[in-house]
Design a protein around this nucleic acid. Structure first.
Lengths: 232, 232
DNA sequence: TTCCGCCCTCTTGTATGTAAGTATGCAGGG
DNA sequence: CCCTGCATACTTACATACAAGAGGGCGGAA
């Protein structure tokens, strides 16, 4: 377990939020393995806080389906379930596709130009294969689309469920051409927006978002114990 | 304040969840007025529980934007914000419209028949003007659509944000023809599903969902102090 | 050997105590 | 009269103590 004492008083907000972020990141990075039992007491000791903020963080994580709390028994990291991943994909796709349609009708030339600059920066970063930096710019891209649509809340919700997608994605081997493909697809979305074509924007974005899911069966074959057995 | 001692041990689950439900219902019914300050201590005393479950309930309500917690100052019921209501509408509309498209392609004859029976029961209830019972059947209708789409999570998320819409709706005067109109629109959605027409199903459902928002300006004029002042 | 019952430990849920910060009312000086 | 400074009463955030229940190990009886 790589979770360790978090530094307090660093102006990073209340302890419960810091614990929440730390746990969420650890779960998505599979530093906590799916199915693993985690204990409020142990976490509190390791993080050098009391059980109260740990408990509040776990409640939020339960609402996001990252942990399952069973009274008088324990708290468990949820196993990856194909249904849950598809649910997350459905929510993200529905919201972002609706947003990009709005964006196509609302964005002005300056907005499009700014988005173009973002995609150019992504192209530069992708040359060096810097996945981490690219992930940040990718989030900015999708957030910007929701912002242009006048619905920043769409990105907030999408980001919450996106954790489930990221947990799966991190298990897949890094594909060498992956970043370049992402940039190319972002360019297609950008073009559709530039032409103020809602249908094209939605179609290209939908295709783009579905790329993530394509690797799911392979990942499941590789880590069968991380997945929930399906019920037919 | 109509919140009162909740009966424990009634098998209704943990106290924190009961408190959560009670507070959420009270806020949506505007028994707690928008902007009003609510105190952990006072709530705990009235509900005959300790501050801990009250606090956990308030944290969940903060995540859903029903209260705003200001450290060392107080917890306040959020005022109604036009932006927040439109956000809720956007999320619900995006998810349910995407779901009804799926439902139109996946539902079989038995599903359609069951949905038809539900609409018929709605028609009966609407005759008597039983708004409360109708609300239950209305929720069942929208939940069923998401179920038919194979995405029950869509209804879970929609239901969460729907609270913000309900809080507004309850402030509007009951329109005599309202229930009948709702049933008629449900019938239109049902017909589109029966003909397996995703485009028509989406269009009719979208129109149906937007009815709620139409009364917003009038409500705002009637209860200006319940609303947040807009920033331009 | 196998099964039943007890006990002990660990878990989460709840209650209560402590700390720290903000708004408010009041007293006193200009 | 008006402004300033402080004491006080509140608030939430966090820490700790207690309660209730589930699971596993162990011993004894059949």
């Amino acid at each position: 377990m790589r979770i360790d004492r978090l530094r307090r008083g660093s102006g990073a907000g209340p302890a419960s939020r810091q614990v929440y972020r730390a746990l969420r990141d650890a779960i998505i990075a599979t530093e906590f393995e799916p199915g693993q039992r985690i204990s409020e007491n142990e976490l509190a000791e390791r993080l050098a806080v009391s059980r109260t903020p740990v408990r509040e963080a776990l409640i939020r994580l339960r609402d996001e389906r990252f942990v399952q709390i069973v009274p008088q028994l324990g708290t468990f990291v949820t196993r990856i379930s194909a249904a849950a991943v598809e649910d997350a994909q459905f929510i993200r796709e529905s919201l972002e596709c609706a947003a990009v349609r709005l964006a196509a009708t609302r964005a002005d030339d300056a907005d499009i130009a700014a988005l173009g600059g973002l995609v150019r920066r992504q192209a530069e970063v992708s040359e060096f294969g810097d996945h981490e930096h690219f992930a940040v710019l990718d989030d900015e891209f999708h957030a910007a689309i929701c912002e242009l649509a006048g619905r920043p809340v769409a990105w907030e919700v999408a980001q919450r469920v996106k954790g489930h997608l990221n947990r799966v994605r991190r298990l897949s081997l890094p594909q060498p051409r992956y970043l370049a493909e992402m940039v190319a697809e972002h360019r297609l979305v950008l073009e559709a927006l530039d032409q103020r074509d809602p249908d094209a924007a939605e179609a290209t974005l939908r295709h783009h978002l579905r790329m993530v899911l394509s690797a799911l069966p392979a990942i499941r074959a590789q880590h069968p114990d991380y997945f929930e057995e399906e019920r037919p």
